[in-house]
Design a protein around this nucleic acid. Structure first.
Lengths: 231, 231
DNA sequence: CGTACCTTTGATGTGAATCAAGAGTAGTGG
DNA sequence: CCACTACTCTTGATTCACATCAAAGGTACG
């Protein structure tokens, strides 16, 4: 379903981080890349592993999560194509604080730290992009902390749905279709909920006519109404 | 109680971020610095403000927090001398996601973004330090998310106390004295607790002989025992 | 020394987790 | 194509950790 031979420079050049790099810079990166195929359920990194580079998702889906004593786990992030992770651990002498596991058959690129440091040395624009990337990551984590701390479970679900609307800017009041990127239990964990609670919230929202749920397909009947939803 | 005239280059050179800079680089930064005094309870930045630089705490104490509809707020971070904030917003075109307020009479330096970008352009080591700094910030936020999601209130308090032990490495079993950096209600909010709950947890830990509380002074009687505390 | 705010303590309430069955739904192999 | 297993998802009953409400000390400070 995917070409066997990868055009790595092309993939790299499509990433925001690596845009506008000279061909020879891309070539240097390419030589430090390793392809990594990952089966569904396969572990990519353990919590505690050392990082000697970072990962880019080419296709598939990866979850980052904390393990927990009682077998349950807390999903921190669900990553799709063109997203990357592990940059921060690469810049510190710290082990991975989370583990990474394939949610489906996936392909990743691992980019060794040496050429990244080399690029940083030579290319100030690249450094700026890297800083911007980490800053965005920081920002969304801060948002998560806000969400977990001051919003109810239903508000978190609503927020999640609205975030996954194609466009929620402006006074758009129409209806939108969303396809959940993965199983409801994983999404529940991402939202710090049990699957049971998520199911009940979907049920309530449906009962109020705000959404329609059919498997992974969710229709938001009225975006504005949903946005004004505050228990 | 503090000297009126500040030796800004000295202050800057003591920050991890700015170590090993050449005198002329420090001078460039100095010219972009503005001193900012802040009274207790005074607002430094509103949530939503734009950032045109970042802040360094020289002395005093600052809290970063989210406002909330019902007057209550969620404290994200308590900053003391030599700590900085606002770097991430500076690298993005985003407003502050939190507000900043003085917890006591404080002095800060505001460092304009222009010379920082300039330094990034010229000094790869500086860029590395900046990246390392943001990475550390990211890491501790991830830790916070872990703490909020999978640890009970008592475990969060215990974790906080242990983090504030002088040294918790090795098999040290001795007792330690901690002085809480600010009021219990602010610490409660930082730990995502109500003041009532924090008070009760301190009470319980005292009743079990694990700690002694006297105002802001807390004695940990047995570090190992406290660390093994899991409700 | 009084006002304003922290902190403690107790009684009560509640949001979401947990426990416990079912009801889809999906892959597997005969 | 159908049974068989294994999940994932839903639904209901119950529990529990923590918040909320209320009121009484403490403590700091003008």
């Amino acid at each position: 379903m995917h070409e066997n031979r990868l055009d790595i420079p092309l993939i790299l050049s499509r990433l925001p981080l690596f845009q506008k790099l000279a061909p020879e810079q891309l070539a240097a990166l390419e030589s430090a890349c390793r392809e990594r195929r990952l089966a569904k359920g396969e572990l990519l990194v353990q919590k505690g592993d050392a990082a000697k580079g970072f990962f880019v998702v080419v296709f598939g889906q990866i979850k980052l999560a904390f393990p927990s004593s009682q077998g349950n786990e807390k999903v921190v992030e669900i990553l799709g194509p063109h997203q990357s992770f592990g940059e921060a651990v690469m810049f510190m002498d710290r082990p991975y604080p989370v583990f990474a596991e394939g949610l489906e058959e996936s392909l990743l690129l691992h980019i060794g730290s040496a050429p990244v440091f080399d690029l940083l040395e030579r290319d100030a624009l690249f450094a700026r992009r890297m800083l911007a990337g980490l800053s965005m990551r920081l920002h969304s984590l801060v948002q998560d902390v806000e969400t977990y701390s001051l919003r109810s479970s239903a508000q978190r679900v609503v927020g999640y749905l609205l975030q996954h609307c194609p466009q929620t800017t402006g006074p758009c009041e129409g209806s939108f279709d969303i396809s959940l990127p993965t199983s409801k239990q994983v999404i529940a964990s991402r939202l710090n909920l049990t699957p049971e609670t998520l199911s009940r919230i979907f049920h309530d929202l449906s009962a109020n006519g705000l959404i329609c749920v059919s498997g992974k397909q969710i229709t938001i009947n009225n975006v504005r109404q949903l946005r004004e939803f505050d228990l």
